[in-house]
Design a binder for these strands. Structure first.
Lengths: 222, 222
DNA sequence: CGATAGCTTGAGAGTACTCAAAGTGGGTGG
DNA sequence: CCACCCACTTTGAGTACTCTCAAGCTATCG
């Protein structure tokens, strides 16, 4: 999950391609804080997220961290470059993952459908990352946070009578490192959005969005 | 070309896979300012850059722009998502491009070697973009510009008796939009690097790097 | 050689950062 | 079961970096 503006990428859900591939490997089950792989590890499996939320991060030598993406159900994580992982991967929740042999990515011989689905997923990832560039390079703190919340509401929000409720399994620091901000800035921006009635903070992990239009406006303001 | 720190991605040059595929389509020749495609265009071809420098950009509604990448010889550009281009593409120099049918990306039936090379290129792109996230999200203006210059020196620098010379076909505004900075900030940072003898500005498009180590240090300072 | 686009420099403003301290809440052990 | 502890979050104050706006400069191209 990158902060992407309303596109219909998600309509073409790759899950379907995998539904009959249970035989390949037993589903992986993770709990909060479990690590799936680290930067530099050899890639043996890719993973289709079936439930839960997964965090991918990169570290800079001096301790600065960038959250590369949050993986939500339907996402595929673990694409290799030169056969290696280039991020660390931790689960933020209880999660179920369907492992997929790396060989299916690299050759379509055994299972062309799977191969194709993996490829499409990688191409979508490139596109989504481009959106995220826009955000990291060119958006203000308010725009970044509202983009983030808006996308989450679209993708995994619970529809309410009016508006959406979203659950944030990640910490404020995770959000900050995803959006390229300081934790304090994220916190202040939340407060500011609450003050201006754009969001309600039910509890620290539960955000109500009474009017998504307002969020959308703020995420593109000029 | 993303701003990537010394990795050996480039060692596995995808060009080789294409050397015997001339028959597929006539080489495209571009001159500075020629556009190859626009955001929203249907993807029919991918392109292997054989010579020249290509710029990929995205626009935000209100005119803000992000340069997604600069394409250098050996790079493949034009990966589709949902069959469409998601960037605008302009040539910055005279350039020669080898068109590759999109079908070769999506199926390995006709040419497995090509298919594989395209896939590897896409996976490398994902990895490089992750590096670029780190930069946009977490680095200072000086770190961004020195990272940029260092990577260029490594990839396309001309080795001098001591140090490197690099040619910058892109404008200061292009560099700014790539690094997520204002043009003025890029200009000031160039001046500052010149003052501190980290670079020499031979002319506006030609930069001398007497001591790459100094650049590397600045690009990772803490 | 003048026009013009691109680049540099300057001044001032504003956003987001850092450092610091107080507040909150969940979990554990008494 | 309650209280304390610790990690996380929020708030505050001050700073610094980068941006914006403006003006001067440079170089390239008719």
């Amino acid at each position: 999950m990158y902060v992407t503006h309303p596109t219909d990428h998600l309509s073409e859900n790759p899950v379907s391609a995998f539904s009959n591939n249970r035989a390949k490997a037993r589903e992986a089950r993770l709990k909060p804080g479990d690590w799936l792989f680290f930067e530099g590890d050899e890639v043996e499996w890719l993973y289709l997220i079936k439930s839960g939320v997964i965090r991918l991060t990169r570290m800079l030598e001096n301790g600065r961290r960038q959250v590369i993406s949050f993986g939500y159900p339907g996402d595929i994580i673990g694409f290799p470059a030169d056969g290696l992982h280039h991020t660390d991967c931790e689960s933020l929740t209880i999660a179920r993952l369907q492992p997929i042999r790396r060989a299916h990515l690299e050759s379509g011989r055994d299972d062309p459908t799977m191969h194709r689905a993996l490829l499409q997923s990688a191409l979508h990832e490139i596109c989504s990352m481009q959106d995220h560039f826009m955000m990291l390079g060119r958006k203000s703190a308010t725009e970044r946070l509202t983009s983030f919340l808006y996308v989450l509401s679209e993708r995994v929000g619970k529809k309410l009578d009016s508006g959406y409720e979203i659950h944030l399994p990640m910490s404020r620091a995770d959000i900050a490192d995803f959006l390229g901000l300081a934790t304090e800035t994220v916190s202040r921006t939340f407060t500011q959005l609450r003050m201006s009635k754009v969001i309600e903070i039910e509890n620290i992990q539960t955000i109500i969005i009474p009017n998504p239009e307002m969020l959308l406006d703020l995420s593109l303001q000029d």
